[in-house]
Nucleic acid binder design. Sequence first.
DNA 1: GATGAATGAGAGTTCATTCAT
DNA 2: TATGAATGAACTCTCATTCAT
Lengths: 209, 209, 209, 209
Amino acid sequence: MTTTTRGRIDKRQAILEGAFTVFAREGYAQACVQEIAREAGVAKPTVYNHMTDKATLFRHALEAAARRILEERVAALEPLAAPGDDLRATLEEVAHTLLRLHTDGRSCALRRLLYSEINHFPDILDIVKESGPDRLTQALADRLARLALAGRLRAADPDLAAEQFLALLLGPLEARTRLGTRELPDAELRTMAGVAVDAFVRAWGTAAA
Amino acid sequence: MTTTTRGRIDKRQAILEGAFTVFAREGYAQACVQEIAREAGVAKPTVYNHMTDKATLFRHALEAAARRILEERVAALEPLAAPGDDLRATLEEVAHTLLRLHTDGRSCALRRLLYSEINHFPDILDIVKESGPDRLTQALADRLARLALAGRLRAADPDLAAEQFLALLLGPLEARTRLGTRELPDAELRTMAGVAVDAFVRAWGTAAA
Amino acid sequence: MTTTTRGRIDKRQAILEGAFTVFAREGYAQACVQEIAREAGVAKPTVYNHMTDKATLFRHALEAAARRILEERVAALEPLAAPGDDLRATLEEVAHTLLRLHTDGRSCALRRLLYSEINHFPDILDIVKESGPDRLTQALADRLARLALAGRLRAADPDLAAEQFLALLLGPLEARTRLGTRELPDAELRTMAGVAVDAFVRAWGTAAA
Amino acid sequence: MTTTTRGRIDKRQAILEGAFTVFAREGYAQACVQEIAREAGVAKPTVYNHMTDKATLFRHALEAAARRILEERVAALEPLAAPGDDLRATLEEVAHTLLRLHTDGRSCALRRLLYSEINHFPDILDIVKESGPDRLTQALADRLARLALAGRLRAADPDLAAEQFLALLLGPLEARTRLGTRELPDAELRTMAGVAVDAFVRAWGTAAA
DNA sequence: GATGAATGAGAGTTCATTCAT
DNA sequence: TATGAATGAACTCTCATTCAT
């Protein structure tokens, strides 16, 4: 029983991962189910046994990938929960982690797919939303609000602060990674984290920080 | 003769525009040449008479659209060439114009297409680069350098300043426009321009400004 | 044990009936085994446990249906074994019964299936023959021969008489039922029986009748 | 021009004929468009250029075949327009021609297809109706009415007379040709025509005939 | 014996591309 | 030059059939 069930679950998992891989490489329309099946190590009809059609497969694959990516990103904010005396250093650490996650292959692929297919699948934004920038921004805003209460940041508008922190940090990525097609050396990521935090602190810091 | 030549040129123009329209709506793979021909008001083989194949058609259509978009954006920086006494107001004006251009339908469509097909057409970035963020950032950096020389901005690094100005301004668009699928009311654009300039001035301004 | 055997027999019965129902509705090629299994309330492999393949299933389903239909038809000739004084009335009664049986849903379905698949399954005619027109005609010819001997019909050729009786009776059905897709009201069946018998008696009757 | 147009028309004709041939041989569902294309000597997409889909192709092929068959049948009634002194002989001639037409391969194929697909294509009866039994019966009834007026047939009901003439003539075919799968020798057709006319004349004739 | 899951083969349909006019 | 027509190649999806339990 266990093996059967396990086997089925494993197969489903393999299909979803294979699908994401192929969709990411080829785009929705170019990806052919045949190839997804090959990538997942199953026969074509097995794919159809698990997902009704190509579109459903796409949605599920996107959702699964997005869920994982979300978790990593929110987890990256952890250090801000208990920042040490050196707020700057904590911010830089978080910034660097976010940059790394944001430039990860799967992350870029997901972003590309969202942009590509947002017209044909208007609902994928909702499927992915909780894992998208929205959720991350909100989690960050929560952290920043605490810091503002502690007098370590200007107490103006934590939502805006979070939005601008992420904009300063991630905005330059688009050009530097050539839309996510180029890896950046870790040194460059560190520098980017540094200058972003610099600007953020000038714009939002207090003397106390 | 003139008419013939004109007719041919017009037809080429119509094909390029029709192609961009359809590619933007459907994506590269889904777009079918038949439909492009219909959109352009010509027969399918006529498309092939002008462009060798679908891929070439795609590149040319992208290039033509990008060129137009570039010109508008760079022109938007014009006010910074001779800013009045109120630098803030000038920055806000420029910021607002850039936001408007960036959220324009064609602009969003171009961005979507770039993201979608960057894998299959690695060269489109070069085709479009001069019109992409790079070029705009550089033009903006030039302006900011002048202002720094004039003591109206911190003299640190104009390239970085330009990069961060654009990041603060355009970064929040992605989430707010839902990847470019939603129009924003002009009032919201004004507010966004305002808060972005606020943060920029806190981070990069001098007492003189 | 008994229950098991019974259960098995019942299941076989259910499969054959489900198969006939689905084949009748969809035709051989369109009918899918999945649907037959659903109709019979069993799983797909169970169907294959009972019948080797789809073709075999088809033949058996046809045979079972045909057998039942045959019995009814031949039984309908019963009254002719001992016709009362009013031969006409007896003939009309038999005629009416035959019409009713012939326009029954299962009967029409069987006819449709025979016509559809006679090319792919040349042997189904033999499978069904004993229950087909041949057998009925012969049984009728037997009855008519007796009547001829009794001087109540022209003594010419009972086989021909039977053939023509059935032709006069059933021939018009094809057009009137639109190839078996339309029910006829009982009143119309009575009328048809009447006029067929009229003609038959004019063609084959004797003064004694 | 002429050649082009002609070529297209010829191709359409070839497709319709090929389609009827293959549909007749395989049935609707089993027939594959690939094979129809091969039979017609064109490529598969050419079939789709002319007909939107398989179903449309089926309807058109049926209609074309039915039209031709209708014309032949109605033409066969011609002799009844001016019957000589020997009405019997004329009836037999017509009867024989009708039997020959009715047992023709295309005719049988059409009948089989109608029976097979009447469930999936309820409209084919209308497509074909004018060529079906209805139309023939009516044309025959017209002729018989004239004969009745001339006192050469019982003047009762020409519609009924026509229906019964055709029933007597064609009814026995089903069994004898084994649902249209067996050719009958011409001698047998002659005999069948003879006995059918015999019976018809006994049932509907007058002394004058 | 009965079933959930898996698969090989094949069908309808579409599309980029090329002739012939 | 512009076009109607034709085609080779591919793709999604279905189905009869078979294992493993």
